[in-house]
């Protein structure tokens, strides 16, 4: 466009030969306030075809997968015989992995509660409207997310491996009180690991959105790491096995 017409003139043209007129302009808050006519198409039939295509694709994928892979059914439930390993469903197995490293109240209650509270509070912590609807907000945001994910993918497996090799719980047994060895110390280590990239980003004059990108990415990537470790690498006795060293008779995928 060479000449910039005001948005209101675009929406309410002055000379159209219409037999009706706009009587009043109101001040107000609404999703469409202050926006010009959009680059839109009729939903019919584009959106419906798009959805029909997704419906076919999704059901066909599940259909074919169900032909190839059977849902597991083991022996009848027996409260007297514990399975080895006994694992929670895959989406809770990350918490089960956390339980191996710290006090149950911290791993099973405090950390998941903090995660849910963080998610609930998120839109009230970060309410700027800049760059809404853009993946990672900006090129800088993309870098922040990428580097944070990389950092987490190194640091969290290292924490799991180190704590597995030199268990804090065992090293400090009888040295300090239980709530220090299993609560304060592992909780503090995790808090530092999570806070570190946030501090680095903050020192580089980040806005709230960039801080949230960092925090969410650390948490999301950590959840992926702990879930993968608990699901794939934990074998009989819930012991850690390197990939490929799992006893032949235990396949973690059988428990899906």
């Amino acid at each position: 466009m060479t000449t910039q017409t005001p948005v209101t003139d675009e929406i309410f043209p002055k000379h159209t030969g219409k037999t009706y007129a706009l009587v009043e302009l109101m001040r107000g808050e609404g999703p469409m306030v202050g926006k010009g006519p959009d680059d839109t198409v009729f939903s019919f039939p584009v959106v419906l075809l798009w959805e029909a295509l997704l419906l076919l694709g999704v059901t066909l994928t599940i259909f074919v997968f169900s032909l190839l892979k059977q849902a597991p059914l083991e022996e009848i439930a027996n409260p007297l015989i514990t399975t080895d390993p006994a694992k929670a469903p895959w989406y809770f197995v990350g918490l089960q992995e956390l339980l191996e490293h710290m006090h149950p109240t911290l791993a099973g209650v405090i950390i998941p509660t903090l995660l849910v509270l963080f998610l609930m509070a998120l839109p009230y912590l970060d309410h700027s409207r800049a760059n809404v609807g853009v993946w990672f907000s900006s090129a800088r945001g993309r870098w922040i997310v990428g580097l944070t994910a990389l950092y987490t993918a190194i640091v969290m497996p290292a924490y799991i491996a180190l704590d597995n090799a030199f268990s804090l719980r065992e090293l400090l047994r009888g040295v300090v009180q239980q709530w220090v060895a299993q609560g304060l110390l592992p909780g503090g280590i995790l808090a530092v690991l999570v806070a570190l990239p946030v501090l680095v980003v903050w020192r580089r004059k980040a806005d709230t959105r960039e801080l949230m990108l960092t925090l969410f990415t650390v948490m999301f990537a950590s959840a992926v790491v702990f879930t993968a470790s608990g699901f794939l690498l934990r074998g009989p006795g819930f012991k850690l096995y390197l990939p490929g060293q799992m006893p032949w008779w235990y396949n973690p995928w059988d428990g899906l």
């Binding site: 027996n78 809770f92 099973g108 209650v109």
Partner: peptide, 27 residues
């Protein structure tokens, strides 16, 4: 998903729900 996990009433279901609900019991 979690409530459906118990319904087959096999060893997998029974122990997954036992482990899962134990986590809730730690509060």
């Amino acid at each position: 998903s979690f409530t459906g996990y118990l319904l087959p009433w096999d060893q997998l279901a029974y122990w997954a729900i036992t482990v899962g609900t134990n986590i809730a019991g730690y509060a």
